[in-house]
């Protein structure tokens, strides 16, 4: 539901990078999204297309990879991954856990068009 604000965040970052590198056009944007960020890739795709329209990332390909959450068991100290639907520790079965990662939305890479292509 908050994909639009995320798409704006991505656009802001890629615009900054484009300026830094003197790039005029973005070809591809790669994101890594933790499952706990609760982002629905198809909605993000739609939101992204909307916010980049007419700008330097117009038509850019968006690649999204969803990553599992990382969880630490407070009961037995075990570290494990969760797909976001079950947080019980696979070692001791207790759900006295804390999340140590998996809610981040990371911009992994941006591919700019080569100048000489134009």
């Amino acid at each position: 539901m908050h994909e639009l604000s995320i798409a704006y965040g991505v656009l802001e970052q890629i615009e900054g990078l484009a300026q830094q590198h003197g790039a005029k056009r973005v070809e591809e944007v790669e994101l890594e999204i933790g499952v706990l960020a609760q982002v629905f890739p198809e909605s993000l795709q739609a939101a992204f297309e909307m916010v980049v329209e007419g700008g330097l990332a117009h038509g850019a390909k968006l690649t999204t990879v969803i990553k599992n959450a990382r969880v630490h068991c407070l009961a037995c100290d075990h570290q494990f991954e969760s797909d976001g639907t079950n947080f019980a520790c696979p070692a001791c079965r207790k759900a006295r856990t804390e999340v140590t990662g998996g809610d981040e939305i990371l911009l992994i890479s941006v591919t700019f068009a080569e100048e000489d292509e134009k």
Binding site: V10, Q13, E104, I105, L106, S109, V110, T111
Partner: peptide, 13 residues
């Protein structure tokens, strides 16, 4: 030209 970033999109928040 591909640029590796690894920047947090929600960093400002």
């Amino acid at each position: 030209m591909k640029i590796k970033v690894v920047a947090n999109v929600l960093e400002a928040n």
